[in-house]
Design a protein around this nucleic acid. Sequence first.
DNA 1: TCTGGGGTCCTAGGACCC
DNA 2: TCTGGGGTCCTAGGACCC
Length: 397
Amino acid sequence: MNRVYALVDCNSFFCSCERVIRPHLRDKPVVVLSNNDGCVVSLTPEAKKLGIKMGDVYFKIKDLCNFHGVHAFSSSFRLYGSMSDRVMKIIATHVPKLEVYSIDEAFLVFEGFDYYDLVEYCKSMRAEILKQTSIPVSIGIAPNKVLAKLANNWAKKNPEYEGVVDVRNVKFRDEVMSKFDVEDIWGIGRQTAKKIRGMGMKTALDLRDYQNDQAIQKYLHKPGRQIQDELRGEVCFSLSESAPKKSILVSRSFDHQVKDKREIEEALVRHTTHAARKLREEGQVCRTMTIYMRTNPFRETPQYQKSAYFRFVSSTNDTGELVTAAMQLMNEIYLEGYEYKKCGVCLYDFEPEDQRQLDLFSKSHEKSEVMKLMDDIHLLMLSGKSKLKKPPTPEAS
DNA sequence: TCTGGGGTCCTAGGACCC
DNA sequence: TCTGGGGTCCTAGGACCC
């Protein structure tokens, strides 16, 4: 049966969410900022036209934003998460299989759609998403994921396609690929792009037609070879539907330089508690945790960064056990006298909670009852909070 | 003063075993 | 004494993604 892939991607997603609750910002330049309002993590085409780029440090472009009336928002992930759910649910009613790839993207597989006009089908799906959620999306249709990404990117850059680009036609695909920079190919980052340029290639078409297999293997390794194969129309990356998580990371930057050990300790307790809750939500237990802390690499001050790991005798998702381990690790690596900027906790080596290997003396069963209670209370508090009127999101403009 | 947070996959290299 | 290849496991770190 003919398998066709598609990628649905929400345009300037975080900004679009802010526009949903502030419709008057349609057509206005909007940016959304990271934690502590550090840098730009989402921006609209109108903001892009003013010269603002993804990742720009906000304090450096603040004057520009004020001058041009750019609307800047702190990020509110609860809003983005719920908007994302709504979009994904609509998509799910249109296809038998989808992979939610990120908060604003989903890969789709069309199987048994041989007699459908997929471009028209996707256009109507797009219209429905827009109508029900006010979120504009772009859709790329292709024989595999890398090409679906490429088609999607082309749809974003060329509004005349009305949000849907289909590159299944080989002649049209060649034409698009000949104008598509290697830097923009999914999976090719800065380092790899530099190498590819050094090998004399500029476009996706150049990479597809590059014949020296040994050089590809030597310099671009397995990922490079797979991307080249997909550019040639083969399928290397299949759809992965809701794979369980393999690691959970919780980290934050401080909004100031931190010297005090107590303050780092408190942050690590918070992060560990948060991570443990996420782990239980996944229905998993972990065998290994690492913590890390580091100074501010953008400063001229003395630099220090260190991580340490802890391996549990029997896997756990118990907050108390995890926090105890985190504190022990912290004492191993914390050094007096440095100005710390960030710390974090990572949990990995998971197994399903109901299959865990218990050691002889483990009391995990009684503990997990306590943990369940804690999570219920947390949920209750969340739902209570969400009913309260939220203070307006700080608007930095 | 001010530079995000959360993930996955791959490779290299060391330790250890036969 | 000690030469060698191969396999496996583990860890660190790079690169990439959104």
